[in-house]
């Protein structure tokens, strides 16, 4: 009876640790830390379908062949439960080794999987993944182990579901629903972070404000649905033309903005000019017609323009964009105070 109480207390603290976790890795670590007090096992696995992540928390003497067998078995069971084959090559495996056994009970280097318990992580009829307890000993688990594991699995599934919901809310909060680019709110946040990097570390930073030339004409001629498609097309061109560390956001209407961290004036001009030419040379299907769109762009930069704040940097990029428009459109213009620096398309 005392043993049952002890186990229930361990179970309670395991559940508590899982429910207060804020990321999947933390869930697995919380569970992994507590599970050795409940079960004798060689390896504990958590597979999360959404991100194709498989975490293995295992005894440090666990041979790689054993881990491979566990992974294979978990995928096999999940494929039965999820009614779909899972491509093992696409799964990201993370292994955490811990000392779970005394030295005299270290695993044989040729140890094989002799027993396991695997349970689906399921919420409201949806399968999110599975968890698995594995051992190199035959008949290592009994009905009580299964009961405890199911309680842990239930809490894990509920916590993962919260993560999923939170992540979709987060997506709504940071992405523009039409174009899939970051929205203005996220841009402000990101710019804040990058500005801090400049002020404290001196890392240069450029902003490129982008506007589609004569976009109103597209909307008036072809209608708003076609206009939306043009916005999506331009967004996709912008996304594929920048570096991995850059941020592309929809600033509003037909205006976009790029944050180019660590880019000096020259590099940001090269990037902007590349985008300008790409758009100019990519015919865009609008309804039944093909139109050639152009962009006007304005660049501002920390430290070249001596802006004192992120707001000022945005204003400078906006001023440069205005100059590009005034100068005939289809241009990249660098902020130059009252007198703008023009670049002529070649």
């Amino acid at each position: 009876m005392r043993l049952i109480f002890k186990n229930l207390n361990v179970l309670r603290s395991t559940i508590n640790a899982i429910s207060t976790s804020i990321e999947i890795k933390e869930i697995v670590e919380s569970a992994g830390t507590n599970l050795p007090n409940l079960f004798d096992f060689s390896s504990f696995g958590v597979f999360w379908k959404e991100d194709l992540l498989l975490f293995l928390y295992q005894e440090e003497s666990c041979p790689p062949s054993f881990a491979q067998e566990v992974v294979k078995n978990m995928i096999k069971v999940f494929s039965i439960l999820g009614e779909e084959a899972v491509d093992a090559d696409r799964i990201a495996l993370q292994v955490e080794k811990r000392k779970l056994r005394p030295r005299q009970m270290m695993m044989d280097p040729k140890a094989t999987l002799k027993s396991y318990l695997t349970l689906p992580l399921t919420v409201e009829g949806e399968i999110l993944g599975c968890i698995s307890l594995n051992s190199d000993q035959p008949n290592a688990f009994d009905a009580q182990d299964l009961q405890f594991l199911s309680v842990i699995g239930y809490q894990m599934a509920a916590t993962l579901k919260h993560f999923q919901r939170f992540s979709s809310i987060k997506n709504i909060a940071i992405y523009d629903t039409l174009t899939g680019l970051y929205n203005r709110r996220y841009f402000e946040e990101r710019l804040g972070v990058e500005t801090q990097k400049y002020f404290y570390g001196g890392t240069p930073l450029s902003l490129v404000m982008v506007d589609i030339d004569h976009f109103k004409k597209v909307n008036d001629t072809f209608g708003h649905t076609e206009g939306d498609q043009v916005l999506c097309k331009i967004s996709s061109l912008l996304k594929t033309s920048v570096r991995k560390k850059d941020t592309v956001a929809r600033y509003g209407g037909e205006e976009f903005i790029l944050i180019l961290p660590e880019a000096g004036l020259e590099e940001s001009f090269v990037i902007a000019e590349r985008i300008r030419r790409l758009v100019e040379n990519t015919p865009c299907e609008v309804g039944q017609a093909q139109v050639n769109l152009t962009l006007s762009m304005g660049i501002s930069n920390f430290p070249s323009h001596r802006a004192k704040s992120k707001e000022e940097l945005v204003k400078m990029a906006d001023q440069a964009l205005y100059d590009a428009k005034r100068g005939g459109r289809n241009k990249v213009c660098i902020f130059a105070g009252k007198s703008a620096q023009w670049t002529v398309p070649t």
Binding site: L81, E83, L119, P120, T122, V123, G125, I127, A143, L146, Q147, S150, V151, G153, Y154, A157
Partner: peptide, 18 residues
């Protein structure tokens, strides 16, 4: 259900029915 809980068991039943 006493061993694996109602949620998992319902999931397995529905899987088998499908």
């Amino acid at each position: 259900s006493a061993l694996i809980g109602e949620a998992i068991l319902a999931f397995l039943f529905n899987l088998a029915i499908r």
